[in-house]
Amino acid sequence: MDALTLLTTRHSSPRLTLPAPTPQQLDVIFNAGARVPDHAGLTPWEFILAQDEGLNRLGEIFFEAAQARGEQGEALARARLLPTRAPVVITVVSRVSEHPKVPAMEQHLSAGCAVMAMQMAAQAQGLGGIWRTGSYATDPVVRRALKVDGEDQIVGFLYLGTPVIKVTPKRALDGTGFVKRL
């Protein structure tokens, strides 16, 4: 698939299964994430890989967060299983460095670009992925467990695997409809 087709047909795959990305595919995915715009070469991102037992550890973190919020019953049980919806989950954290020319927001955006690039690298290799955030991305228990503090942010959980179903691409939007001229 050529780059323009990849970008203009981008889609999420919400239902993912095995096989998981291979180590070689993951290398390509991480390398794509590290090639995004990065003003001053700050590399303001960290990729936390959860697969196999790591998915269960991430599930325990989500469970503890849900418990701390007072969730009960099915919602509490569901929290533990959320990471197991895919064979791989990559948590992308923006790690902010103090810099006179690169504000924190730009560093968060760079980490967000990394998520997009990694999802596109997965799709280009025949894999599926979905970028999720939700309440766990800002939850204090999750932040503490993943050592996210200060201005650092969890910008997304990138779920990766093999699509269970063929996703119908979203309706095509005419990007020119969002253009305002000065």
Results as ranks from 00 to 15, higher is better:
residue 172 A to E: 14
residue 101 K to R: 06
residue 121 A to I: 02
residue 11 H to L: 13
residue 85 R to D: 06
residue 104 A to I: 10
residue 95 R to S: 05
residue 129 G to P: 09
residue 35 R to P: 05
residue 153 Q to W: 04
residue 148 V to M: 01
residue 84 T to L: 14
residue 78 R to A: 13
residue 44 P to T: 01
residue 127 L to P: 08
residue 23 P to A: 00
residue 73 G to Y: 05
residue 4 L to R: 13
residue 135 S to L: 07
residue 92 V to E: 06
residue 64 E to W: 04
residue 107 Q to R: 00
residue 52 D to T: 05
residue 147 K to Y: 08
residue 20 A to P: 02
residue 148 V to L: 00
residue 100 P to R: 11
residue 148 V to F: 00
residue 118 M to G: 03
residue 99 H to N: 01
residue 66 A to E: 08
residue 21 P to G: 09
residue 143 R to V: 00
residue 60 E to D: 15
residue 87 P to M: 04
residue 59 G to A: 01
residue 25 Q to L: 02
residue 7 L to G: 07
residue 30 F to Q: 02
residue 109 L to K: 12
residue 39 H to L: 01
residue 5 T to A: 14
residue 58 L to H: 02
residue 86 A to M: 06
residue 72 Q to T: 14
residue 55 L to A: 04
residue 178 F to D: 13
residue 123 Q to W: 03
residue 16 L to F: 01
residue 31 N to M: 12
residue 134 G to Q: 07
residue 67 Q to L: 12
residue 84 T to K: 15
residue 164 V to F: 12
residue 182 L to A: 14
residue 170 K to G: 06
residue 73 G to I: 11
residue 53 E to F: 05
residue 80 R to Q: 15
residue 38 D to A: 03
residue 37 P to Y: 03
residue 160 L to R: 05
residue 9 T to Y: 04
residue 178 F to W: 15
residue 12 S to G: 09
residue 171 R to C: 07
residue 79 A to V: 08
residue 25 Q to R: 02
residue 173 L to N: 12
residue 112 G to H: 08
residue 53 E to N: 11
residue 58 L to D: 11
residue 71 E to Y: 10
residue 73 G to W: 05
residue 15 R to T: 06
residue 16 L to D: 00
residue 176 T to F: 10
residue 95 R to W: 01
residue 125 Q to V: 10
residue 179 V to K: 08
residue 88 V to R: 04
residue 132 R to M: 05
residue 169 P to F: 12
residue 107 Q to M: 01
residue 134 G to N: 07
residue 181 R to P: 04
residue 133 T to H: 04
residue 137 A to S: 15
residue 88 V to W: 02
residue 147 K to C: 10
residue 142 V to C: 00
residue 25 Q to Y: 05
residue 66 A to K: 05
